[in-house]
C-alpha cells in the first residue's frame, strides 16, 4: 500500500531576489490526502505550481511516475495529464460551455471519441452534482458551481494525483461547503490529493497529513491531530492560534 506517487527533493525557486522555496522535500503516498497550510506568502501555492511545472523551479527534483519532471527532456504534456489541478480562480474556459470544458482536453490530447468523452464528462459532472448544468454557459455559473465543474474537468483526464490551489478562497462562506463536500468524496474514493487551503476544519477532518509551511520551508508536518492538537514548533502554534482567534471573531 505504501507506494510513493510523488517525491520532491530539494526544490528551490526564487522570483528575482525573493526566495520563495528554500529546499522543499516531500513525499506523497498513493491515496494520501496532504493539506498544506501556512500564512500567505509562505510559498504554498508556488510549491503546488512547481509540481506541475506551471512555475519552473530553479533547482531540485520532482519524481513522478518514475520520471524527473525537472529533466528538460521529459514529455511534460504527457505527465501533466496525470496531474489534475484545481485553481483558486476556477479558470474555466470562458469560450466553452460546461460539458465542452470537460471534454476539450480528453478529445484534443487523448483523442478520445466525442461520444465517449461526453459520457465520461456527464458521469463526473453528475458526481459533483451538476447534472442539470451540463449545457450551461460556464461564465454564468456561481463560484461554487464553477469550482465543481473545474474539479469534474480535471477528473475527466483520470489523474493519478490532484492538486488543489486554495480551491475555496474565492468563494462565499456559504458555498464553500459544496466544494469541500466534493473534495471529501474524492478523498474517500482514494484519490491522492495535495490541498493548499485555509480551511482548517477541512484539513483536520479529511487529511492524512498536514504540512505547515513558513517562509519557503516546511516547518512541521504530521497527522492532523498532532499539528492541530499539539504543535511542536513555536511558529506553527502562533499561526494556528491566530487563525483560530480570527475564526472566532
Amino acid at each position: 500500500m505504501n507506494e510513493t506517487v510523488l517525491k520532491i527533493e530539494g526544490l528551490e525557486k526564487s522570483f528575482g531576489n525573493l526566495e520563495v522555496l528554500k529546499g522543499i522535500d516531500l513525499e506523497v503516498q498513493k491515496g494520501e490526502v496532504v493539506c498544506i497550510i501556512g500564512a500567505s506568502g509562505s510559498g504554498k501555492s508556488t510549491l503546488l505550481r512547481c509540481i506541475n511545472l506551471l512555475e519552473e523551479a530553479d533547482a531540485g527534483h520532482i519524481w513522478f511516475d518514475g520520471q524527473d519532471l525537472m529533466d528538460l527532456n521529459v514529455n511534460l504534456n504527457a505527465l501533466r495529464q496525470k496531474i489534475g489541478m484545481v485553481f483558486q480562480s476556477f479558470n474555466l474556459f470562458n469560450n466553452k460551455n460546461v460539458i465542452d470544458n470537460c471534454t476539450l482536453s480528453p478529445m484534443t490530447v487523448r483523442k478520445v471519441p466525442k461520444a465517449q468523452a461526453e459520457e465520461t464528462a456527464i458521469r463526473h459532472l453528475t458526481t459533483v452534482g451538476l447534472a442539470d448544468f451540463i449545457y450551461a454557459d460556464s461564465t454564468r455559473l456561481s463560484g461554487g458551481q464553477k469550482q465543481r465543474v473545474a474539479i469534474a474537468r480535471s477528473l475527466c483526464m483520470e489523474p493519478e494525483i490532484m492538486l488543489f490551489d486554495e480551491p475555496t478562497s474565492a468563494l462565499d462562506p456559504e458555498i464553500v461547503g459544496e466544494v469541500l463536500d466534493v473534495m471529501k468524496e474524492l478523498a474517500a474514493e482514494g484519490m491522492t490529493m495535495i490541498v493548499v487551503t485555509h480551511e482548517m476544519a477541512f484539513a483536520k477532518e479529511v487529511s492524512d497529513r498536514v504540512i505547515f509551511m513558513d517562509q519557503g520551508v516546511i516547518l512541521e508536518q504530521g497527522s492532523p491531530r498532532d499539528i492541530f492538537g499539539n504543535p511542536r514548533n513555536e511558529r506553527t502554534r502562533e499561526f494556528l492560534s491566530r487563525y483560530l482567534e480570527d475564526k472566532q471573531e
Binding site: N52, L54, N77, A78, R80, Q81, I83, G84, M85, F87, S89, F90, N91, L92, F93, N94, L104, S105, T108, V109, R110, A150, R153, S154, M157
Partner: peptide
C-alpha cells in the same frame, strides 16, 4: 489562468 488550466490538463 486560461492557458494554465489548459496546460495543466495536458494540452
Amino acid at each position: 489562468g486560461q492557458t494554465e488550466a489548459a496546460r495543466s490538463l495536458g494540452m
